[in-house]
Amino acid sequence: MIESRKRWRLTTPDEQTVQEIQKELNLSSVLAKILVTRGLNTADAARTFMQMDATCMHDPYLMKDMDLAVERIRQAIDNQEKIVVYGDYDAGATRF
């Protein structure tokens, strides 16, 4: 078995902050702990984070060759080709 050389640093969120966010936003304790651990220490910050809309997202055309990808997808649709989409586990986390 391969042993990792990395050491995890686990943090413990402030329990009072977790309880305040949990109560004010009616969340599970697990979700409140995750939010506080991510640095969202107020109910307003957590609410804003969870109510993200399209105005918070980056323009996808800022990615290199996005126009070429869109053109190829349209070609595949027109030709009734099968399309497979691959992505890694945090592909949507580019805003953090």
Rank of each mutant, 00 (worst) to 15 (best):
M1A: 14
M1W: 08
M1N: 12
I2L: 13
I2C: 08
I2Y: 12
E3D: 09
E3C: 04
S4P: 07
R5I: 12
R5V: 10
R5M: 13
K6F: 11
K6P: 00
K6I: 15
R7D: 04
R7C: 04
W8E: 14
R9W: 06
R9Q: 13
R9Y: 11
R9C: 07
L10I: 14
T11A: 11
T12H: 09
T12L: 12
P13W: 01
P13K: 04
D14P: 04
E15D: 09
Q16V: 14
T17S: 08
V18D: 03
V18F: 02
Q19R: 13
E20I: 13
I21N: 00
Q22M: 10
Q22P: 02
K23P: 02
K23D: 11
E24A: 08
E24N: 07
E24Q: 11
E24I: 02
N26F: 05
L27G: 02
L27M: 03
S28L: 04
S28N: 03
S28E: 00
S29E: 15
L31S: 02
L31M: 10
A32R: 01
A32Y: 04
A32V: 00
K33R: 15
L35D: 05
L35T: 02
L35G: 02
V36A: 05
T37L: 08
T37R: 14
R38A: 08
R38T: 05
G39N: 03
G39D: 06
G39C: 02
L40T: 04
N41M: 04
N41L: 07
N41Q: 09
T42N: 02
A43C: 00
A43H: 00
D44K: 11
D44Y: 01
D44I: 01
A45D: 14
R47S: 12
R47E: 08
R47D: 09
M50P: 01
M50Y: 00
M50G: 01
Q51I: 00
Q51G: 09
Q51H: 09
M52I: 06
M52H: 03
M52A: 09
T55Q: 09
T55E: 12
C56V: 06
C56I: 03
C56W: 11
C56K: 13
C56R: 14
M57H: 10
D59I: 00
D59K: 04
D59T: 02
D59P: 01
P60R: 03
Y61G: 01
Y61V: 03
L62H: 09
L62N: 10
L62I: 11
K64M: 08
D65K: 10
M66K: 00
M66S: 03
D67P: 06
L68D: 14
L68S: 14
V70A: 07
V70N: 03
R72V: 02
R72H: 10
R74I: 07
Q75I: 05
Q75T: 09
A76K: 09
I77D: 05
I77H: 09
I77A: 11
I77M: 14
D78E: 14
D78H: 11
N79D: 11
Q80A: 10
Q80W: 06
K82S: 15
K82G: 10
K82H: 13
I83N: 01
I83V: 14
I83S: 05
I83L: 10
V84E: 12
Y86D: 06
G87M: 06
D88M: 08
D88T: 08
D88N: 15
D90L: 15
D90V: 13
A91L: 07
A91C: 09
A91H: 01
G92I: 11
G92N: 06
A93Q: 11
T94Q: 10
F96H: 10
F96Y: 14
